[in-house]
């Protein structure tokens, strides 16, 4: 197992009192799985992904990532994990407007002080279909192109785990299919594990497993019949 979430709980204080974002959620994911986390808005999908990414801390419960308990990691160690082993993709792309396509893609690797693999960079740019737009800035790209850059950025360091929060939320059918294709490519080539929070049936149909959350609880966990151990 690459990921073991055990009895994870989180409450947020709101104007109306406390809101339960996650209520004793437990989930085990094997290496190389493609898991879709579905559920309505406020079901707890983003909270779950943020906890796994180390961007938020749970009230109780634990997360074992690659054998390491990560819920109480110091910020420094948590940041290192995100640079080296976890790729994060957001619905609103989160590209740095001051950097062009190439620079956005290599940013996490550069932040980590590692050497840039130029061959892999050229390959990934071709694969996301942005050959010729390497030096374009995000403001000059369409939503679909920006999301492809965001996916490429998350995949460039060949992470063990990719966390994608509504990666196709703002995209049309064609661009969504392209994003899914990229996620599947990285999984096949580098055995990366993909965890996608989504509303999209198109994404869920491509996943080996669909976990549905409602009001912070897992209400269903379905595996595709041909993949029983994901």
């Amino acid at each position: 197992m690459i990921l073991e979430v055990d009895h994870l709980s989180k409450e947020y204080a709101t104007a109306d009192g406390k809101t339960v974002a996650l209520d004793k959620v437990s989930l085990r994911v094997r290496r190389g799985a493609f898991v879709a986390v579905m559920g309505s808005s406020c079901a707890g999908k983003t909270t779950l992904l943020n906890m796994i990414a180390g961007l938020d801390h749970p009230d109780s419960g634990s997360i074992l990532f690659d054998g390491e308990e990560i819920t109480r990691l110091p910020d420094r160690r948590s940041a290192t994990l995100r640079r080296r082993k976890i790729g994060v993709i957001c619905q609103f792309y989160n590209l740095v407007p001051e950097l062009n396509v190439l620079e956005n893609i290599i940013l996490p690797t550069e932040l980590d002080g590692r050497e840039i693999d130029r061959t892999w960079l050229a390959e990934i740019v071709e694969r996301i279909g942005l050959g010729g737009l390497e030096h374009a800035y995000p403001a000059f790209l369409s939503g679909g192109q920006q999301q492809r850059v965001s996916v490429a950025r998350a995949l460039f360091s060949k992470p063990a785990l990719v966390l994608a929060d509504e990666p196709t939320g703002n995209l049309d059918y064609e661009n969504s299919a392209e994003v899914i294709r990229l996620l599947k490519f990285i999984r096949e080539k580098y055995s990366s594990t993909i965890l996608v929070a989504t509303h999209s049936n198109q994404v869920a149909a491509e996943a080996d497993r669909t976990v549905t959350l409602s009001c912070g609880k897992i209400i269903s966990d379905r595996r595709r019949c041909d993949v029983s151990d994901c």
Binding site: L55, D75, R76, A79, T80, R82, I86, L95, L111, D112
Partner: peptide, 15 residues
């Protein structure tokens, strides 16, 4: 906004 992006990419506190 910039800090949130850099945090999600694993930037260190110093960066």
């Amino acid at each position: 906004q910039s800090l949130a992006v850099l945090t999600s990419l694993g930037a260190t506190g110093w960066q």
